[in-house]
């Protein structure tokens, strides 16, 4: 009986992890019940082989080396997009003229895949960290900017008028009303920006790099080292999931008191 109540209480957890475990077990057992044709066997790997490759790459320091390169590009690009996107979003939210002037660019860049600029960035900045940082920046800046802007636009007019009536200047208004009220939006923007930034790192390293996890994946694929490809993919997956969950946690903590949900684009 006790087992049964435990099962019903934790049903979602059991089913969720159970599904993943079964999927991995099925994948692992494929070679046991099906002999792959020669051509396919070259592209096939099992979770245990991926784990073994992961351990080996960890021991010989390969992962650490590539990870640092990717992490620096990620942090620099994301940092730059925060430094640019946040103030610009605030200004666009407060000034209608600036909004009208910049809107065509923001809308069209946001709607189009920034990855198309990669060959040009490689041409301009060469193969290496700079072209990556720029492409990460280009991916991450728009969600941040647009969400900050939406947050500012959504600030309660009454609050703004009250603070104004008590003689606050624009700077104080920003600090006391606008920024705190748009924080949930900014965090939602940050969550999207993280996803875009990781995408930028991956693709940037496929083409414009000789180091980094993305490069590790691309070069392993060309050498048919499928297990190494999956090691790289798994690392990116884990990082994205962890970072997204962390920001979501922050989001729900900040947004717990507000009834409406933050707009995300």
């Amino acid at each position: 009986m006790k087992l049964k109540t435990f099962c019903t209480e934790h049903e979602s957890f059991i089913l969720g992890t159970g599904f993943i475990v079964i999927l991995l077990a099925l994948w692992e057992s494929v070679p046991l019940w099906y002999t792959l044709p020669k051509g396919m066997a070259l592209f096939f790997t099992t979770p245990s082989k991926v784990a073994a490759a992961f351990q080996q790459l960890l021991i010989n320091g390969e992962i650490e080396k590539h990870f640092y390169v990717s992490a620096i590009a990620f942090l620099a690009g994301l940092g730059l997009s925060i430094v640019v996107g946040l103030p610009l979003g605030l200004l666009m939210g407060r000034s209608q003229t600036l909004e009208a002037l910049l809107d065509p660019y923001v809308t069209s860049f946001n709607a189009s895949p920034r990855i198309v600029w990669l060959p040009l960035m490689i041409l301009w900045f060469g193969i290496g960290i700079w072209s990556k940082i720029v492409i990460v920046f280009a991916g991450a800046v728009f969600p941040l900017l647009i969400n900050t802007y939406a947050g500012v636009k959504n600030v309660n007019r009454v609050l703004v008028n009250v603070v104004r009536s008590f003689g606050a200047n624009e700077w104080q208004l920003m600090k006391v009303v606008v920024l705190p009220n748009s924080l949930p939006y900014i965090i939602a923007g940050l969550r999207l920006a993280i996803g875009r930034a990781i995408l930028g790192v991956v693709v940037g390293e496929f083409f414009g790099s000789s180091q980094g996890l993305g490069y590790m994946i691309a070069s392993a694929a060309t050498n048919y080292k499928v297990d190494v490809v999956f090691v790289g993919v798994a690392i990116f997956m884990a990082l994205s999931v962890i970072l997204t969950l962390a920001v979501k946690q922050l989001e729900s903590r900040l947004a717990s008191w507000r009834p409406e949900t933050a707009k995300t684009f």
Binding site: F43, I198, L199, T222, V229, S240
Partner: peptide
Amino acid sequence: ASPLVALAPLLII
């Protein structure tokens, strides 16, 4: 949540 584009080289190959 994960950048599945990382699978691009494998899929193409």
